[in-house]
Computed example of a mutant assay.
Amino acid sequence: MINLSIILPMYNVAGYLEKCVKSVMNTNLGGDSFEIIFVDDESPDNSKIVAKDIIKRYPEYNFKLISQTNKGLGGARNTGIDNAEGDYLIFLDPDDFIVDNNLEETLQNAKSNNLDILEFNATMVNSKGETIQTVKVNSYEKILSGIIYSNLFYCSGSACNKLYSRGFLNQFDLRFMEKVYGEDFEFNTRVFFHASRVKGLNKVVSAFLQSPNSITRNRDIDKKIKYLKDYIKILTNLKSYFSNIEVNQTSDAIIYYKSRMALINTNSFILLIKNKFPTDYALQYRKRLENDDLLFITSEIVIKKKNLVRKFLFQYQGMFFIVFKLNNIIKGTIKLPL
């Protein structure tokens, strides 16, 4: 019986696959109780060859290898969900890996409590394997709805530090947006809204490699512009989605929806500041949000530091302009592509 499906999207990850797969094999999960689903997202490297070799060398484990036309990370994960057989799913990027021996306990906790989502701790490591930071979730023992859980506690935007019930995802037809940056946050916003049984587990289960070339850490201005455009796509999609399911049915749901939208707004403004975008560009971006009714600056955010940024930028009239102008004077301005 397959209790857990581990979904591994593949795109230029040949050098990481072996370590990731072996980290799962080295847990105390029985080989017949889980499956590993490789999704080849039209990878230009030899990831598919490496995956085939792993499958050949370990016939005692359950593997699936699926190839598809490139759909991005979200599309690859959707293919994994559609082909999964496990009661629960875990999404791993191939440069991530499982640590310690907490995966079986985590899975049993989810199953015994019939959870829709179980969130767990994760470490962030550098290329040397050294821990940079630990993503800690709440250790509140009670089972809560996704809305209440998110309104009360910090909830990681990542999809890789959670177990998801496959039946729950299918019940509400929950899938990732394709070919956008920030797909995890958008996905989790809809997922936690529908979840009725959510719990946090104060145990480290996985480690995330923090690469300087990742989407959020690289200095490629074209990728930063795409991220800003994708934030608008995500806001638009969520606004449409929640308007169709009457989000304003309860006050908790309203708080949840507006808080998540406000966090996306704040993240976009932080991206603009950190990457030294010109003041005019920031003002135009804000105007676009206002015109499309996508600006949620009055809503509180659970993450305290992000909430302080939101308040600082919008508490006083003109502060938004002053912050960006001073940032350009002190740090300079990037040159935008024509």
Rank of each mutant, 00 (worst) to 15 (best):
Q317P: 06
I245N: 14
T106D: 09
K142D: 12
N170V: 07
I132A: 07
L313V: 07
L338T: 09
I37F: 03
E60D: 08
D220E: 13
Y316Q: 15
V13K: 09
Y154P: 03
Y281T: 00
T298W: 06
Q108V: 10
S214Q: 09
Y316P: 07
Q68S: 09
N70Y: 00
I264F: 09
L201Q: 12
Q210A: 03
V13N: 08
R166N: 04
S240I: 14
G75V: 01
I36W: 03
N12E: 11
Y149Q: 05
Y149L: 02
I273V: 00
L8V: 10
F120T: 05
L65E: 06
I36G: 03
N213M: 03
T134R: 15
P9R: 04
E141N: 14
K239V: 12
E141M: 09
P59L: 03
F38C: 01
A262N: 06
E104S: 09
L152Q: 10
P44N: 04
K233L: 15
D116H: 15
K325A: 14
I270Y: 05
S158A: 09
G30V: 01
V309R: 11
F193W: 14
G74V: 04
S23M: 06
Y164R: 06
L295I: 12
L283I: 08
N70T: 00
S156H: 02
I36H: 01
G332I: 11
I215C: 01
F34H: 05
H194W: 14
F312L: 14
L209A: 13
L29V: 03
V323E: 12
D93P: 01
R197I: 10
I245E: 13
